[in-house]
Simulated scan of single mutants.
Amino acid sequence: MLETTTENVVRSWVDGWIASRMAAPPTVESWGYTVDVGIAGHVTRHVFDATGGAVREADVRKVAGAVRTGGTWLKIFADPALTAPWLGPEWWIDDEPGYLMTVPLAPAPAHLLTAPDGYRLRSWSRGGVVRTMVTAADGALAARGQIAVVGATAVADQIETSAEHRRKGLGSLVMRVLATAAHDQGAQTGVLAGTPDGHALYTSLGWQVLAPLTSAKYLDPHER
């Protein structure tokens, strides 16, 4: 695991995620960023700009202690085993860490950018975000993903493969198509916040872990 702790990677991820999800511009805080998302179950998120051992317990406790609204999320770039004791019982915490990951971007060879037999690949760009979709022969969604280019950085987001179409290389295809498109737009570095399920895929494509990620959600009383 890489031990680099760079605030600019977190900010790049925040900016790219905002572009990808069409969220509000971030409010810069002394400890990181507040982003208004504005959807049910995900109203606002607070992202801490430190990673690993540089994350300050006092900052997390202060921010978490001020939250009173369900649908508020915390994104903390440290292992849940470290951060969970800093949060109260009103917080749901994913006990498996996600990962902040990066990779130098490069175009893939043309023969690796085509769908396998029985599948159809389509990509398009709108609002600065490139989207890729793979469908099966019957038109069902097999895999998808999107990437937002912000300056020299591209943030991959919402990478998904349907359960019945996994282990067929479709996730790798989506990632290669997105990385190539971002590189063609001038991006040099890819960044993503990956789930435990996605970790193996991203690692196989050369992505490296910068820091683990704690995701925590403030629960309404009826959810506790």
Rank of each mutant, 00 (worst) to 15 (best):
V55N: 09
A40V: 13
D79N: 08
A78T: 06
T69S: 13
D49K: 13
T69I: 11
L82Y: 12
P89N: 08
W73L: 11
A23Q: 10
H42I: 00
T83A: 03
G71W: 12
P80A: 07
H42D: 09
D59L: 03
L82W: 09
T72K: 01
F48D: 07
V37C: 09
W86M: 06
P25M: 11
E57A: 15
V28A: 12
V28E: 12
P89D: 06
P25V: 11
W91Y: 04
K62N: 10
V35K: 05
T72F: 05
T51D: 01
F48Q: 13
R61H: 08
I39M: 15
V28L: 09
T83I: 12
T51K: 03
D36M: 07
T72I: 04
R68M: 09
G71A: 13
V67D: 01
G32Y: 06
A50Y: 00
V37H: 08
P25A: 13
G71R: 13
W91R: 01
V37D: 06
G38E: 11
T34R: 15
A50D: 07
A84D: 03
L87R: 03
R61F: 05
G88I: 02
W91P: 00
K62I: 01
T34H: 10
G41M: 13
P85C: 08
S30V: 07
R61Q: 14
G88H: 02
